[in-house]
Design a protein around this nucleic acid. Structure first.
Length: 488
RNA sequence: GGCGGCGUAGCCAAGUGGCUAAGGCGACGGUCUGCAAAACCGUUAUUCGGCGGUUCAAUUCCGCCCGCCGCCUCCA
């Protein structure tokens, strides 16, 4: 496996700290709002990376924090007139709603800043003892010039940085580039006791403390969005390596940005897309498909057109799974290995190509292409072969599920891909639909196509598409809540 | 100004020093169908922003130019 390491600027062979095990820390959201598409990309990218390590047989320890103590939270809470802790807790819950929709697995640990204050204080104390940090008016700052390797991740020199640096009013830094480890409490702000007086952690220290706590020194992979390279991850390195005098993370992986119609998503441009809103418009699996449709380090441009293409592409994937399952269920399949041999051989090639794609710095765009090649092979086989071989069809479906387990497009229930999302439990509606379909079939038999088409067009207007197949009528719902059913 | 990235068909996008430049969406023609839908078969880049250079050979390496973008301040 090869992984692009921001630290070296190169693709490198992946060699874990400990054979067969991978430790991963990913910077999670600051919980002051619903997550947006950019957060979602990071989540989905690293979830997919994690899934691929699992596929490869590694034991993975995956940690993703919540920054639940932060200026943004305090400001937002003040605007809404609620307690910062309550606001943060709410958006942690809301995070899981969106992450679940995107089929992002829970991390092994989801540590919160608010629950790791003692660890943070301890780490700051070590930095002070080592002479890397100093106190000033109840604040504690990290002295950047005391850490000679500062800038090694973002490839910047202190001189370059100094030109653009600025000091906020009320700060007491010795050097403009120094950053806060601990901020003295201002009136009305949450605070904790510390050796330096009441206050709260600075922005970067929590990740160092929590990563070291759960993964130890020199863990394998630290990930996040490219915008975190500087200053957040640079500062994490300075704090962690300054304290431990050992390498912090071995590989740094950063995903590219999501842009909206070529513009950076930002609050000032007013073009922030929240996952909560998007999942109301698009099926979440289409969103995930879209987020993995190009290489994780490249920018990804969101447009309604691109999403529509994703929705159509998702339909193609669904149809193929439905077709495979139908064939396995009906009398067409038999034990006919001779006819399946060619496809079986192709399946092995596809598996190899999939692995090669993911081995090459998690090339999900290529991996998706392999998935679509699988669809093509399968559909063509089912189209051309009268008596498909049961074992081969099953193997094809298994391979689809295997790819899906890595890419996470369709959720799984009891080990089965759930191709219909938002299945309606409304049995009554289903029976009504079956009745309408039966009536239409009778009309068709009488060659009363006016009636038949009226029913089909009417259902289409309600978001239900009918497909007449030799095996009976298949129906599916279009739109975000997508259901596929069969009525014969 | 410093650092970094990108420019491949109508759109999205992978990729390679020489072998047919993946895949998706769209479009067009055909098969199937009462008509559709889905699926299948076929067509859709003699060419990879422009100009030079290196090379037997470059879209792929180098230089310059043009265009676009990101980071350097909170941000996934």
């Amino acid at each position: 496996m090869e992984v692009f390491n921001t630290l070296t600027g190169r693709k490198e062979p992946f060699l874990p700290r400990e054979a067969g095990r991978v430790s991963i820390y990913v910077c999670g959201p600051t919980t002051y709002n619903y997550i947006h598409l950019g957060n979602a990309r990071a989540l989905v990218v690293f979830d997919t990376i994690r899934r691929y390590f699992l596929y490869r047989g590694y034991r993975v320890t995956y940690v993703q924090n919540f920054t639940d103590v932060d200026d943004k939270i305090i400001n937002r809470a003040r605007e809404e007139g609620v307690e910062p802790a309550a606001l943060a807790a709410k958006y942690v819950d809301e995070y899981f709603v969106d992450a679940d929709a995107l089929n992002v697995r829970r991390a092994d640990v989801h540590p919160k800043v608010s629950e790791h204050i003692p660890e943070i204080i301890q780490l700051i104390q070590v930095l002070i003892d080592r002479g890397l940090a100093y106190t000033a008016n109840g604040d504690v700052y990290f002295a950047v010039r005391k850490f000679p390797e500062y800038g090694k991740l973002s490839k910047r020199s202190l001189d370059d940085l100094r030109a653009g640096a600025r000091v906020e009013v009320g700060e007491h830094k010795r050097d403009p580039l120094d950053f806060a480890l601990w901020k003295a409490a201002k009136p009305g702000e949450p605070w904790w006791d510390s050796p330096w007086g009441p206050g709260r952690p600075g922005w970067h220290i929590e990740c160092s403390a929590m990563a070291l706590k759960y993964l130890g020194e020199a863990f394998d992979i630290h990930g996040g969005g490219a915008d975190l390279i500087f200053p957040h991850h640079e500062n994490e390195i300075a704090q962690s390596e300054g304290a431990s005098r050992r390498p912090f993370a071995r590989y740094w992986i950063h995903n590219g940005f999501v842009t909206i119609r070529q513009e950076k998503m930002s609050k000032s441009l007013g073009n922030v897309s929240l996952v909560r809103e998007l999942t109301r418009i698009y099926p979440p699996p289409a969103l995930r498909l879209f987020l993995l449709s190009n290489h994780y380090r490249s920018p990804l441009d969101f447009t309604p057109e691109a999403m529509e293409a994703g929705v159509r592409a998702l339909e193609r994937l669904k149809t193929s799974v439905v077709l495979l399952r139908e064939v396995l269920d009906n009398a067409r399949v038999q034990d006919n290995p001779a006819d399946g041999a060619a496809l079986s051989a192709r399946l092995e090639e596809l598996r190899n190509r999939f692995e090669a794609a993911m081995d090459d710095d998690f090339n999900t765009a290529l991996a998706q292409a392999v998935l679509f090649d699988l669809v093509g092979e399968v559909n063509s086989y089912l189209h051309h072969v009268d008596r498909p071989d049961r074992a081969t069809v099953q193997r094809a479906l298994d391979l689809f599920a295997t790819f899906n387990r890595v890419l996470g497009i369709f959720p799984e229930r009891d080990g089965q891909m759930v191709v219909e999302t938002g299945v309606s439990a409304d049995d009554f509606a289903h029976r009504l639909l079956d009745l309408l379909i039966a009536v239409r079939q009778e009309a068709r038999r009488r060659k009363d196509f006016t009636t038949a088409d009226r029913i089909r067009d009417g259902l289409r207007a309600l978001g239900i598409v009918l497909e007449d197949t030799p095996q009976g009528v298949r129906w599916k719902r279009t739109g975000a809540g997508n259901t596929i059913g069969k009525s014969s």
